[in-house]
Design a protein around this nucleic acid. Structure first.
Lengths: 200, 200, 200, 200
DNA sequence: GATGAATGAGCGTTCATTCAT
DNA sequence: TATGAATGAACGCTCATTCAT
């Protein structure tokens, strides 16, 4: 029994190991340019081993988004639950978004580059976690309006502004040769958001 | 001489024809999924002909950004020159951005999907026109601060917010199955920008 | 116009060239063991060229049977039309079967080896021409019975006997290291068929 | 000692178990299309276990022919020994051939499909048992001629006719979606053989 | 200049076989 | 002996690019 449990643990470990390797590889070359054999080499396994854990190359990308974006969104959700005011919630979103990406630079790169895939199968797999994030942001704005902390305004536009700004900041940081810390951008970003939402 | 000129015009026409075909093709399948032969078919030329006008498939993508983004930025610049206040300038940016993309949906799709390529050659070619746009936006903010119309704030963050929000709105519109008009988003977006910049 | 016609001729030529190469290659290694690149090498074309003429490796095998078995059956049919008695018809079948296979040894090998494929797609493609051949043989027997030249007997069994015997003779000849002429077997085979059918 | 014997019995049992599984698996998918893991699953053992009993996948096919064709030929031989006349011997061959294949449909399928492999190693392994069967048939014919029961004729051709006809009948039966009983074909086949050999 | 048939490098995936447990 | 996870060679097929016409 203990042995079986160990095996499952070992399996999970190798699964994550391949996923990590895939993130690195995709970050460097992009999804289409990256060969499966490169992921395998990075993960320290044989090419064939990949297919014991994933259905296909595409499946790796999809699982990658589902798992890691899922983690990210859970982080955000946890932080939001601990926040009492709209200002605190905005700060939580900005801060978690930036620090998560900062600590997962390769994932951030993959996110920036592959988030907008034209391939329908990939897109629909990505859409799920992303929409959840959108809902969280829109929830913060809506709640803010209901509490009177936020001026009545177009919630969808506000969400586009918040996510777009954060995403663009990450994009800038990712593309920069010698990136300064992302976290430094948190304060000025919060200042802008407060203004945009007319936060009281 | 007239004959030669005609030839050059004909050449330019076919060049644009291929570029248009490429935009459509890339919009449908994405850069990597789209075969050169598909572009050729759409353009009504033979596969080989493409290579009389472009060095490579990658070159098509690069030229596409340089040419069409160039047009786009010129549009913006023209509109900005006719604007007297920061509010008008913001409105000009929003409106031109949205209406340009709305009238060039396929280009918008390509922009959203392929703008963030990991391939270094492509990236650096894209970066050029994009940076110019960034400078225009930052110029508007800086001027606004100097005139006292805009509160003193982090200009880079403001640019990230403005471009990111516009980009995200276009992204939403592009990905939507049955997109409502982008232009409708202009007003609420302006309202948010005004607040973010504490526009007087 | 003449140029276009030439092109079609050239295309047809290369098509047959690849088919011939495939027959040789399949005969040597068998369908599954034979790589597409081997066919290409034998045909003197690049691997990719194969796919300008055939949908897939499987398509080559299918087309091979349809074309060459089609030729074979047409040969048989022509010979049968020129025959006046059941004895002459039997002789025509035996002689044409043997001489065709003798002159197309590699095709004969492929026929022996791949005729009985388990793959359903391949099987159904093969079944067509083969069933036609069966019908021809059964027609000869039935006509013979109707004319009173052949004793009343189970037509299907007779066809199994005739085709089976011919096929087995070819099989023997194909597998033999130093095969004697197949045609030499024609006369004793005819003698056996005459007895089996109680030919008058 | 008893324990050791039991082990050997157990070993033999598992060996046959794998062989039976291989027959089923090969019959369904054909040799090349069938994965070793499928045989293992059918046999209820692990993939690796197969290699404790067989050198390779090819070895399974070879052993399969040697063992099961050996059984088959022993059956024939026994039946022939109990027969007194050529007619009885022919009947014994037909009946044993048909009933053996009818009771071992999967083996029959494998025989029909894989009997004629182009791979030299496989071929030479198959040739052994097959040649023995050929000799038995030729022995019956030769004896018949010597007894004056059979007309003087080409013994090899007669063997090709007899084996070819039986093989083709089995082939027809095997390929049929809803096969009628093979045994029903025995009588008409005997009638044809009697005529072919001018049996008195 | 224009064509499109031909090229062949490149890659995702499979599966027979091995070997540490 | 038995396992089954891991291996990696092998191969069918694609498609950007070339070049003879």
């Amino acid at each position: 029994m203990a042995a079986k449990e160990e095996k499952i643990v070992a399996r999970e470990e190798k699964y994550q190991q391949i996923l990590d390797a895939a993130i690195e590889a995709f970050a460097v070359s992009g999804y289409y340019q990256c060969q499966v054999s490169k992921i395998a080499r990075l993960a320290g396994v044989a090419d064939g081993t990949i297919y014991l854990y994933f259905k296909s190359k595409q499946d790796i990308l999809i699982k990658l988004f589902q798992e890691r974006m899922g983690d990210f969104i859970n982080d955000i959700r946890t932080q939001l639950n601990d926040s009492q005011s709209t200002r605190e919630r905005l700060r939580a979103i900005i801060w978690t978004h930036f620090s998560y990406m900062e600590h997962n630079r390769s994932l951030a790169i993959v996110t920036q580059v592959e988030l907008r895939q034209s391939d329908p199968d990939i897109r629909s797999a990505i859409t799920g976690p992303l929409k959840e994030y959108f809902k969280l942001i829109e929830g913060v704005v809506t709640t803010g309006i209901e509490c009177g902390e936020v001026a009545p305004l177009d919630v969808k536009a506000a969400r586009q502004l918040i996510f777009g700004a954060l995403d663009e900041a990450v994009s800038d940081w990712v593309m920069a040769r010698t990136p300064r810390s992302l976290s430094n951008s948190a304060k000025p970003m919060l200042f802008l958001f407060e203004g945009a939402l007319r936060l009281k």
